Simulated scan of single mutants.
Amino acid sequence: MKRLLGLAWAATIALAASQAAAAVIYQENFSGTGAALNGKAVGPTAANWAAGSVYLDNGTVGTVVGNATGQAAHLPFAPQSGTVYTLKATVLNTFADWIAVGFFPAVPAGGSWTATNASMRHSNASAYAWGLTRNNATANDQEFFNGINTTNPLTGVNGDLVSPLAPVDVKIVLDTTAATWTATYFLNGVQRGTTQNLPAGANTGIGGVGFSRTSNTTAGTGGVVSNFELSVVPEPAALSLAAVGMIGAVAASRRRK
């Protein structure tokens, strides 16, 4: 009996380890030829990018010229309670105007994610957890925001944290396992600051993920995005239930024998 239980525990641990591995929701490596990103399919979950004209399928992000305007690249995403999600992307942006990655609402104020206007930017699109990177001599090169638009800036985290002259890895971990959802922020694999409580509206307000960029004064190539991925880790409680179920099944089989 002890040997059977030992084998059961070993099997349970193996099952839990396999289930704990992140399941990919979206993965985009931007390996296209330079065509428009808008309408491009992305997997493994079937969806299409909704993107402004500056976003290309090879990762190039052109500049948006104008005053207080911007563009976005958006994928639909409705987070479920009791789950941990990881959003990550690599951004190379050596210009003073920012490129951001994070969580969007489902629908922008302007009605279409392909538009060019102020509501396309994370700073105006009711984004709840997002971060930006830029090469700016008079402002923070990297900033994270923990609330709608630019509310709840993480002042203890923002600054010239990593060089924008090289690709910057941005990661946001969204945890919905408690009543108050939280976000944890990383740059180049290093956690920045402590885990933050999100505003209550995040539980119903998040409806997408993706990029945005603000406007700048000159036209041209504005940056490159790559290695975009959204993944989910199964709820720990679900793994515990699976373990209990397996042990029970082994014990019942033993009694029958």
Rank of each mutant, 00 (worst) to 15 (best):
P199V: 12
S215E: 04
E28H: 14
N38H: 10
A10N: 04
V61M: 03
E28S: 13
F228S: 10
A8S: 08
D141M: 05
G156N: 11
K88D: 03
A8V: 01
Q19Y: 14
I247N: 13
V162Y: 08
V24H: 12
A46T: 11
W98L: 10
K40M: 11
G222W: 09
A129Y: 05
T114Y: 00
Y26F: 14
K88A: 05
S253L: 10
A237M: 07
A14M: 02
T204A: 07
S126I: 03
N29V: 11
T12D: 05
T83H: 06
V224D: 05
V233A: 13
N197W: 02
P153C: 02
A47C: 05
E28G: 05
L37P: 08
S163Q: 15
L4S: 12
S31D: 11
A41K: 07
I148S: 10
T195Y: 05
T133R: 01
P105Q: 15
I172K: 02
I206M: 05
S123E: 09
N58R: 14
T94E: 13
S18M: 13
A47E: 06
L92Q: 11
T221W: 06
G39V: 00
A50T: 07
A237V: 05
T133P: 01
A166G: 06
S31L: 15
D169A: 15
L5K: 03
G205K: 03
A11N: 15
Q142A: 03
L87N: 12
T69Q: 01
L87V: 07
V168D: 07
T184W: 11
Q27T: 13
M1Y: 15
N158D: 08
K257I: 11
F103V: 04
Y55D: 00
S18V: 12
R3S: 09
S215K: 02
L165S: 12
G193D: 03
T182W: 10
L37R: 13
P44D: 09
V42K: 13
D57S: 04
N135Q: 03
A219M: 01
S119R: 01
V91A: 14
N135W: 04
L239H: 07
T221F: 15
S226G: 11
T195A: 06
A100S: 13
N136K: 07
R255G: 03
A179L: 04
V65Q: 00
G62L: 09
A238G: 05
V64S: 03
Q142L: 02
Q196D: 03
T218V: 14
R213L: 15
P79C: 05
A127G: 05
K257L: 12
L174S: 07
